[in-house]
């Protein structure tokens, strides 16, 4: 059994990296209203990452910034699903968004049942924002579900989506999205896409000596 802070770091890294990936659509989403909505969702994900990093940082005697930006790419615990750079494939982006929100819902519900009071409280807060992300994902799903491009994207991403949740939650996720349980792409290996993302994400931070005040 992993430490609680290891599980939280997985979630925080997922949220940070997915928030980062989704923010790559800012300014180039299919239409203006969606641009605003998707950017806002991306910002929420990064906000959730921040709250989780703060919780873990207290435990480990460090800071949220150090956890988010001072680790080496290999030390991140995010799942391969969130690492993929999907600009400019909107169908695949929505497929990932829909699958991730489903996985995240199940994972947050498990945390709320987990018995840790601080954590259950934070999970409930995060879930209240995620409810709007799910609403957004579901309305896009309803619109694209019959499109071949979208179905192919869901098929392709599904094993990675399963890897977002712990093995004991996978049957529940499969039932929720109505797909068979298949071998999951686990979070033990990173894609090459993470290295590139990390280079850009930490560029400004690395340009200043450690401990610089902003």
């Amino acid at each position: 059994m992993r430490h609680l802070h290891e599980r939280l770091l997985e979630i925080a890294d997922d949220e940070l990296v997915l928030g980062w990936r989704n923010s790559e659509w800012t300014g180039i989403a299919p239409f203006l209203e969606e641009d605003v909505a998707f950017s806002s969702i991306a910002q929420n994900e990064i906000g959730h990452a921040r709250a989780l990093y703060q919780l873990v940082a207290r435990e480990l005697g460090t800071t949220a910034d150090e956890l988010a930006l001072d680790r080496q790419p290999g030390e991140y615990r995010c799942a391969p699903l969130v690492e993929l750079r999907l600009v400019d494939d909107w169908a695949k982006t929505i497929a990932r968004h829909w699958l991730y929100e489903a996985a995240d819902w199940i994972r947050l519900a498990a945390l709320r049942r987990g018995g840790d009071e601080d954590l259950a409280g934070l999970a409930a807060k995060i879930d209240r924002e995620e409810a709007y992300h799910r609403m957004h994902a579901d309305m896009w799903f309803a619109r694209l579900r019959d499109e071949a491009r979208f179905q192919e994207a869901v098929d392709e991403l599904w094993p990675s989506a399963l890897g977002v949740v712990d093995p004991e939650l996978r049957a529940e996720l499969a039932a929720l999205v109505g797909r068979p349980e298949v071998p999951a792409v686990e979070r033990d290996a990173h894609t090459d896409a993470l290295r590139e993302l990390w280079d850009e994400m930490t560029m400004v931070r690395r340009s200043e000596p450690a401990g610089a005040q902003w």
């Binding site: 239409f31 203006l32 209203e33 969606e34 605003v36 909505a37 806002s40 709007y132 609403m135 957004h136 309305m139 309803a142 619109r143």
Partner: peptide
């Protein structure tokens, strides 16, 4: 005003632009 393909999208976009 917002442009949206249906009521569900309209609700989501209205929330984001005028409520968040």
């Amino acid at each position: 005003a917002i442009a949206a393909p249906d009521q569900a999208f309209a609700e989501a976009y209205a929330r984001e632009q005028y409520g968040r």
